[in-house]
Amino acid sequence: MPQPVGLLDRSLTRPARVALLAYDDVQILDVTGPLEVFGRTSRWLREHRGASSDCYTLELLSTQAPVIRSSSGLRLHADRTLGSPGGRIDTLLIAGGIGVQRTAQDAQVLAWVRARALQVRRLGSVCTGAFVLAEAGLLDGRRAVTHWSACDELARRFPQVKVERDPIFIRDGSLYTSAGVTAGMDLALALVEEDCGREVALAVARELVLFLRRPGGQSQFSVQLSTRGESRHDPDWNRVVRWCRGARLRGPLGSVHHGRQTGRGGPGGLHRVP
């Protein structure tokens, strides 16, 4: 029987095996990003909480040959292929990449994923890895997200899937999907938070110099990507823009407050900013 979501308590008294499924022409950041989050969590707990063993064991799975050629040309060596015996998987993630459509048409891969879906505690995808889950029928009637450029295709090809275009990641029961590339690290941090608590997840985010865990509902298109608020020539103005993006403004700001942010100070300071 698969364990219900949340069964592992925050102490994680036993290692949880995290397996990531990859294939030729995989997006390498879809693989290395999430795995680094889990690996760094184990390291942080050893160094700062005195853990005597890793809370996660990591495994890279290949659909075919042991050596995986990523879309960037770099090669990864898998721990095992799908046909090889292995230990029980707690969390299974499927990476995305330009090779995903070929993988999603592989009947053996789909059968393997369907079988593991009945056994793992959590099943998820990074980026366009959602197409494998959808082709296997595992997203039917579920909310899901993928890379913004592939959302329309996912919705068109799989109308039974409730595709949402904006979120960074989505949890629907024990099934998780995430947006493109680095959003896989956001998803991994969310899974760490489920297992180990918010404090640990934030500490790991700081170690990796990541945003302190973006909420899953945040739009794939951040303010920084969708606007051109900063100036190439005015660092003081850029400080104000960055401060405004991070602040929760509840009312109008006076020029004196603005002056404190820019260092220009005084009434009328706002009018002197280009």
Rank of each mutant, 00 (worst) to 15 (best):
V163R: 02
R156D: 13
L202R: 13
T227M: 08
G229F: 14
L187F: 04
L191N: 00
G217M: 10
D186H: 03
V223N: 07
A188D: 01
T182A: 09
P215H: 03
A188N: 02
Q160H: 15
M185R: 03
D186S: 02
G180K: 03
R157T: 04
A150Y: 15
A190K: 01
L225R: 12
E153F: 03
E199K: 06
K162S: 04
A205E: 11
S231E: 10
T177L: 01
V204G: 10
A201R: 04
T227C: 09
P159N: 07
F221Y: 12
G184K: 00
G216Y: 04
Q218K: 07
S222F: 09
R213P: 00
Q218S: 09
P159W: 05
R228A: 13
I170R: 00
G197K: 03
C196G: 11
W148L: 13
A179G: 15
S219C: 10
A183L: 05
F211G: 08
A201M: 15
F169G: 00
A201W: 06
L210I: 08
G180D: 02
Q218M: 14
A188W: 05
R157N: 07
S226L: 15
R206M: 15
F169L: 05
V209S: 10
L212G: 11
E153Y: 02
R214M: 13
S226G: 14
L189R: 01
Q160S: 15
G217H: 14
R214T: 11
A150N: 11
R198S: 12
S149K: 15
Q224C: 07
A205N: 06
M185C: 04
E153W: 13
V192A: 11
E193H: 04
A203H: 12
F221P: 01
V209Y: 05
Y176V: 00
S222I: 06
R165C: 01
V163G: 02
S219K: 07
F221K: 09
H147G: 09
P167K: 00
G216E: 10
D152M: 14
A188C: 06
R228S: 12
L175K: 01
V181F: 07
T146Y: 03
P167F: 01
D166F: 14
E193W: 04
S231G: 08
V163Q: 05
F211A: 07
M185T: 01
S219F: 04
A205K: 01
L210C: 08
